[in-house]
Amino acid sequence: MSRGDGPLLSLENIYKFFPVRKSFFVAGTLRVHAVDGVSIDVPAGKTVGLVGESGCGKTTLGRMAIRLIPPDAGRVVFEGRDITTLAGEELRRIRSKMQIIFQDPYSSLNPRMRVRDIVGEGWRVHGIARGAEAREMAWRLLRRVGLSADAADKYPHEFSGGQRQRIGIARAIALSPRLVVADEPVSALDVSVQAQILNLLRDIQEEYGMAYLFVSHDLRVIRHVSDTVAVMYLGKLMEVSPAEDLFREPIHPYSRSLLSAVPMPGGALREKIVLSGEIPSPIHIPPGCRFHTRCFMAQRMCGEVSPLLRECAPGRYAACHFV
């Protein structure tokens, strides 16, 4: 596959388990099924929104996409190249093309480093620039993300949450990556600041042409930024649709219930679907369709056969027996 054709990033049947400390009375090892067989493509220059309840594995998936944590099974293909088992120097070299923006603007910046060293770390690591040149580049970068140049010599604790997130964004784009995983980049911020940061992310995408894998639990944010939306539940994808289609008419019963919970400006009024019960434990995943314990459409076969993600309408995929 040549570089131009395929998607920028392909996750192919990715799994991630976390072992749980074994109890004396339980035979065998218990595992949290954080990501349970997910395949998804991120096209170059586009934004794929990943939405789901907390604990559904979306953050884990995002970290595997840029090889921050290794998948237990499946393949990560970046620019047509399998990077699943890449290590050492080769892995470090490819890291400059894939970056991440974190949720928590406090723990994501080293409190003992000056801002110019934080945003310029990648330049130093990859031998791109240092000294006066790096300082110059840091000033330009900081102004680009809406901070003043004198921010370069300060420490992170001298900034507000929104400003810190701008520093995190500057760090992520410093190496002009082709893919940025945005892991809940605005959920720790005030609503007014959220809009500013979202606009900044959009402007930067237009300018640099990078793709976003945008992880969020906030449907309004997802709608604002995404070209394609993937809905995740307990480690599996329930639906993948173009954003417009999904928000106009969700296919999967889980997507439908999620969307009915959020009043959308301009959206048609939907009947509210209230899910019963709690989200099941990711250690003991229900057999069959993992959503059947809470689904308003569930039939007998849902508890026995796990539905596959299949194309239900042109360009739209859902994992449900009855749509």
Binding site: R95, I100, H126
Partner: peptide
């Protein structure tokens, strides 16, 4: 902490992470 993950994502090696990110803190 996230800033260590960030350094790793930037391509920093173990020694750099230990001496620049963990030790000072």
């Amino acid at each position: 902490r996230d800033f260590v993950s960030a350094a790793r994502a930037q391509g920093a090696g173990n020694l750099r992470i230990i001496f620049r990110h963990i030790l000072p803190n």
